[in-house]
């Protein structure tokens, strides 16, 4: 149910190391905010769209993923057009669209485990000060992926239980038992983790 947004493939972006892509995305983000010419930004948006298309993602899925963010970009651009100038609007539209498309291209070509490796590396300085443990972060990510489907099933169960008793299904009437029943499992899960010696 909870699968990553990376798509399989063997394009140049797939083969590029995750770190290079993340650093590239960061540099592009800074660069895009330093430029204000609509023409340059328009060119950048076209390049970004090309990179996103080069990941081999199916067109319908490609649009579905960025649709919501691009609508907010469009609204912001429209506000700039209405209250300021067309040049400002185009600059904002192209700058943010380019950034969104580049980011989507990185997400589409980088696996969850490649991201986790980079996060482990970034946490290393914090780990040295004893602030956080990288192993804990990956354990927590694993726990969410493991238990989210179970919690969704429990939500359906609680709704069924309400219906079976002729009670109206109200959001709060379901949420409260869902939270209590889920958090009550914490002791058992923590015992199971400690018994296996995962955290030392």
């Amino acid at each position: 149910m909870l699968t990553g947004l990376d798509i399989e493939g063997d394009t140049p972006l797939h083969r590029a190391p995750a770190r290079a892509k993340l650093v590239g995305l960061f540099v592009a983000a800074v660069g895009l905010f330093l430029v204000s010419s609509p023409f340059l930004l328009g060119a950048a948006a076209i390049v970004a769209a090309g990179l996103y298309a080069s990941t081999g993602i199916a067109p319908r899925e490609a649009i579905r993923r960025v649709r919501f963010v691009l609508i907010t970009v469009l609204l912001v651009a429209a506000a700039n057009y209405l209250f300021h100038s067309a040049a400002d609007a185009l600059a904002v539209l192209f700058r943010l669209s380019a950034l969104v498309l580049l980011a989507a291209a990185v997400t589409a070509t980088t696996t969850i485990s490649a991201f986790m490796d980079e996060i482990t590396l970034m946490l290393r300085p914090l780990e040295r000060f004893g602030l956080v443990r990288a192993a804990d972060v990956s354990l927590a990510v694993g726990l969410v992926l493991r238990f989210a489907p179970e919690i969704l099933a429990r939500y359906a169960d609680i709704r069924e239980a309400h219906r079976a008793r002729g009670l109206p299904v109200r959001p709060l009437g379901v949420l409260v038992p869902l939270v209590i029943l889920t958090l009550r499992d914490a002791d058992t899960i923590a015992l199971a983790i400690d018994a296996r010696g995962f955290r030392r």
Binding site: L2, D136, L139, A140, L143, V144, F147, A148, I151, L178, V179, T182, L183, D185, A186, D187, I189, A190, I193, D194, R199
Partner: peptide, 15 residues
């Protein structure tokens, strides 16, 4: 460990 599990479970609830 219990706190860690509580954090993960609540994140799963938000998801």
């Amino acid at each position: 460990t219990r706190d860690l599990v509580l954090v993960a479970l609540f994140a799963a609830i938000i998801v």
